[in-house]
């Protein structure tokens, strides 16, 4: 039975399935980093973008616009080559990739959350202040929860985009799914088979992510309507 199955599978799969599994995990690791650090920092940047102080707002808006208006590929090159030359601190592909994807995540999430915050009627903040609630309480219990729930579809969309964007990390030799697949195809001399399998893996993981994000969205919507 086993031999029939292994005969049907392309040779590279039996030889390199473990490497491919690790590659998918590496892609997901960078996605988690971009989304985790990005979302947390994005909350802070979103609030800073709405600050009345131009000294705080100005640099943050400049950073967000700079990152949003340049391709991730260009940012990665700059972080990997120009930044170490400027600071004198060396970088590895993994470190540059982590900085790049986290920075990009923070700026994209910040823009989405800022939109969500502005969607919460200002009257609620005034009313909460009139009731004597602290600033911390107003932001953490009233404004941000609504802002995040309202923007869940946009946030989910960004998570999916970032999953696909992890393939760009291959250009600085991060061993994620794209890089590993290219390596395997060069070694086995079967680019069509390997790249087809890679596409299927992206579709599979992407569909799984969509399903998970949809679940999260419904759960939050249910909770908020209770």
């Amino acid at each position: 039975m086993y031999s029939i199955v292994s005969d049907l599978l392309p040779g590279f799969l039996t030889q390199y399935w473990l490497a491919l599994a690790f590659a998918v995990l590496t892609s997901l690791k960078f996605l988690a980093l971009g989304v985790g650090v990005g979302f947390t920092a994005g909350l802070g940047l979103a609030i800073a973008q709405l600050s009345p102080s131009p000294w705080l707002r100005g640099p943050v808006v400049a950073l967000v616009e700079l990152i949003r208006n340049t391709p991730l590929l260009v940012q990665l090159f700059w972080i990997h080559f120009a930044l170490p030359a400027l600071t004198g601190i060396g970088s590895s592909p993994e470190r540059s990739a982590a900085i790049g994807i986290a920075l990009s995540g923070a700026c994209y999430f910040s823009e989405i959350i800022r939109g969500g915050i502005q969607g919460v009627p200002k009257g609620q903040r005034d009313a909460a202040a009139a009731l004597g609630l602290s600033r911390w309480c107003i932001w953490s219990r009233i404004v941000l929860p609504q802002a995040v729930i309202d923007t869940l579809p946009a946030l989910a969309n960004t998570v999916l985009s970032f999953f696909k964007a992890t393939s760009i990390l291959s250009v600085i030799a991060v061993p994620e799914l794209m890089m590993t697949s290219t390596r395997i195809s060069a070694r086995t001399g079967d680019p069509i088979g390997v790249l087809t399998l890679m596409t299927l893996l992206y579709i599979f993981v992407g569909a799984l992510l969509t399903l998970m994000l949809h679940r999260v969205e419904t759960a939050f919507k249910l909770r908020s309507t209770r």
């Binding site: 990997h80 080559f81 060396g90 250009v171 600085i172 061993p175």
Partner: peptide
């Protein structure tokens, strides 16, 4: 040091 074909020369010039 891992590089890719598109970053091989820039990486050398940047002292990586």
């Amino acid at each position: 040091v891992d590089a890719s074909w598109s970053t091989l020369i820039p990486g050398l010039l940047a002292g990586q």
